[in-house]
């Protein structure tokens, strides 16, 4: 049975989610991947204000396809989260509460998540056409010149994810794998 959460995601709700939980997300989430993360960090370094407030927000690591006429968004599945690891602790320190992607995270990311009370969700990689159906609106927020890598504000309804890393540091990748490993 999946739990439904509505964004923004506060610390208490984030800390209540456990590795392995099926979650349906309703509300607003933001897209951002490699280039957008690099830009945000660069702006922070120069002391410039960010184009969005990340407090209690969720970032979805995605670079969608262009939408066909009549579509809200093109196919939009998760990208590999590990590439964002170098940038993520700084974003978590600024209030980021959740991330959606696929694949493992670094120990530095996990430690910061535990400290601030954040959660890492995974969506099914490759199920891009299916996932796009749960996105009901899409609007450009920043870095339009980055094309697919721009930051967009998405409105989602019953967006399906699984908690892969919780704020206690439990890792579904490890737990799930151990169950099915065959000793040779």
């Amino acid at each position: 049975m999946a739990k439904t959460i509505t964004t923004p995601l506060d610390e208490k709700t984030a800390r209540s989610l456990k590795a392995g939980d099926r979650v349906l997300i309703d509300g607003v989430i933001y897209t951002g991947r490699d280039a957008a993360h690099a830009r945000l960090l660069e702006m922070a370094k120069k002391g410039e204000p960010w184009p969005l407030d990340l407090q209690d927000q969720i970032i979805y690591y995605v670079g969608p396809c262009p939408e066909k006429p009549g579509q809200v968004i093109g196919p939009a599945g998760p990208t590999t989260s590990g590439r964002m690891d170098l940038f993520t602790p700084a974003l978590l320190e600024k209030g980021l509460r959740g991330m959606i992607g696929k694949g493992s995270r670094s120990p530095q990311v996990v430690e910061t998540m535990k400290k601030v009370g954040a959660v890492y969700f995974v969506a099914t990689g490759g199920a891009a056409a299916l996932i796009a159906d749960r996105i009901t609106a899409s609007e450009l927020v920043a870095f339009g010149e980055l094309g697919t890598e721009a930051i967009r504000r998405l409105v989602v309804k019953e967006f399906p994810v699984i908690v892969a890393l919780d704020s206690d540091g439990n890792d579904l990748y490890k737990i799930g794998r151990e169950k099915f490993r065959v000793a040779v």
Partner: peptide
């Protein structure tokens, strides 16, 4: 989910993966 996604992509002529 992957099977369903493949069917949607084929039917609507959209990319399987972004």
């Amino acid at each position: 989910e992957l099977q369903e996604n493949i069917a949607i992509a084929r039917e609507r002529r959209v990319a399987i993966c972004q």
